[in-house]
Design a protein around this nucleic acid. Structure first.
Lengths: 335, 335
DNA sequence: GTGAAAGCGCTAACAG
DNA sequence: CTGTTAGCGCTTTCAC
């Protein structure tokens, strides 16, 4: 690997017969206001172009203490929702000249700490996080150095900027309507009860039943974790216990619903009467024989809001109390 | 935002009463072999820990010309396959102390050039690319400076390292078997014909029909692009033309199959007799009433191979002719 | 208008 | 064993 030495600003300066500083001014675009002559400017620019000059990000970062880099921390990139979110955010960042650094935590707090430290060490200018932590202590500290925006999950009563989809109300409306159809039992499958999406969706579930005048039985509520396998296991166990499939079920996340579907199909139960509804949508639900009603989040909107807040903060705007809750849509397939 | 000034190696050195270079040696872990006294080493380490010292990646990158960063270029992160691949690769990289920089091209060559330039400018140590380009000229040039590994798609007769799932043979086997069932027509939906996955899968389709002794009719082959909407449109048009659904169909990618399914469900055709098969699997296919046979890629394996090659190359190993073709699995749901 | 010089934080000779 | 020195590539005063 013969490495053609990097062309630096010094080379450009020499070729153009000016000093490093002049070249620097021109190349960083601020030649004009700083009274570099038209002629010099063009010469330098031309030469730079011809030589394929590429400024070194690292040298820049070193003395501006800005890396033009934003860290994104998500539990799983393979989750459809986070993938869409990441994609949207990546596009926004790239258009703004920022590089997105993505780190996955596998829903694991200690891995999250590692990932975040790693990002900080890379001097990200800001951090966007869907955290698996219990509280925001760590992020409060970080937020004193670089801006932090939380999304998808709230950490206790954190005062950090936050972008989230309103879960309680839409879940309640969904559940209420299903409950009013006269189902005599209504199960809830949730992920880890300690993370806020699970809690909010459960709260929505409670309110929905309540509004429909249906008394919640404690054994209806079952918690697992947000993984493909978990929904399957929970459902298998439930079927075992009941000796049949449940009448109605709300899954607090896409992954859980997936597991349930897999169980149903593997056991030839897809034609059984069962009322399914779920938080998070998937395009393939359209093609299922069983009709699943869902609460649909707008991930692009989430990404857009996170981006807006973080870039404002990075630019030094001092936006107070940025806690945004975006509306969700209900998608009725049973109707 | 009161920014507590960064603690540098100089600070540590002062606090420990040694020189910058000694501190540097200790902190970069090579204090021992370079004969720094036990006592000094411990003192420096202690102080560094207490002061939460974090070495500046940028300063390091500046004089080592290594950024400990790898660029990944994919068409779409939202595609299940690329998401899984990215996730696996991210984990491998992070464990190896490398940061993965992900860029999306939206299947667009000029956007790809931009993204790649941006990554290069950030001095990535290596590049892993699923390219939407027509040839490897650009990457050959880049490869003279930093190692490049192509995956998922081959670019002409490129000699660059390449990791790919074997598509022709498994597709041929899948198609052959379906053809032998005695279908009297067999359509092929592909993405852009210019990119290699489309071509390979088409070639596999051809061979499959051939082996089954079925004569291919040119009008069976229909090209669109790899987007959710494309499969839908192609299928809509085909149904229009035929006045019914086709007897058998092979979709060259997950997205196309999705569009087809959406059309079928929206038009209440899911119960129609149609023989579906597809390249790329999806877990939800299990839950469909229509049985889809698929060719399944192992994305984790792809990621692992890419990682192995790129890290070898980055470490300066001179691996010649790294073109790896991984086997695919067939998943029969119709059986 | 332009250049010289210092410094961002770190590493790598080379002297002691 | 440890300190001095000289960069890595760029920006930013401050003179001329």
């Amino acid at each position: 690997m013969n490495k053609p030495k990097r062309v630096t600003i010094k080379d450009i300066a020499q070729l153009a017969g000016v000093s490093k500083s002049t070249a620097s001014l021109v190349l960083s675009g601020r030649g004009k206001e700083l009274r570099v002559s038209e002629a010099t400017r063009e010469r330098v620019m031309d030469i730079a172009r011809q030589a394929h000059y590429q400024p070194s990000i690292h040298a820049r970062a070193l003395n501006s203490s800005r890396s033009h880099t934003v860290g994104l921390v998500v539990p799983e990139m393979t989750n459809q929702g986070f993938a869409t979110f990441s994609h949207a955010l990546e596009t926004l960042c790239r258009d703004a000249g920022l590089q997105l650094l993505i780190a996955c935590t596998d829903e694991n707090a200690s891995q999250e700490t590692l990932a975040v430290n790693n990002l900080i060490q890379r001097q990200v200018d800001g951090l966007i996080v869907a955290s698996s932590m219990l509280n925001d202590a760590e992020y409060q500290k970080i937020n004193q150095q670089i801006p932090v925006v939380l999304f998808d999950r709230h950490l206790g009563e954190s005062t950090l900027p936050l972008v989230i989809t309103d879960a309680i109300e839409p879940t309640a409306r969904l559940v209420e309507r299903v409950a009013r159809e006269g189902v005599e039992e209504f199960y809830f499958f949730g992920g880890q009860p300690r993370i806020s999406p699970t809690r909010d969706r459960l709260e929505g579930f409670r309110q929905g039943l309540d509004r429909a005048g249906m008394a919640l039985k404690p054994e209806w509520i079952i918690h697992g974790h947000y993984h493909a396998s978990s929904g399957y296991e929970m459902f298998a166990e439930l079927c075992m216990r009941l000796g049949r499939v449940p009448k109605a079920l709300f899954c607090a996340a896409c992954g859980l619903q997936e597991g349930v579907l897999r169980y149903l199909s593997q056991h030839g139960l897809l034609e059984q009467p069962i009322r399914l509804c779920s938080f998070d949508d998937h395009y393939l639900y359209d093609a299922l024989s069983v009709k699943i009603d869902t609460v649909v989040q707008d991930e692009r909107m989430l990404a857009w809001n996170c981006f807006e807040i973080i870039s404002g903060l990075i630019e030094g705007e001092t936006l107070e109390n940025q806690q945004r809750q975006l509306p969700a849509l209900l998608k009725w397939r049973s109707a």
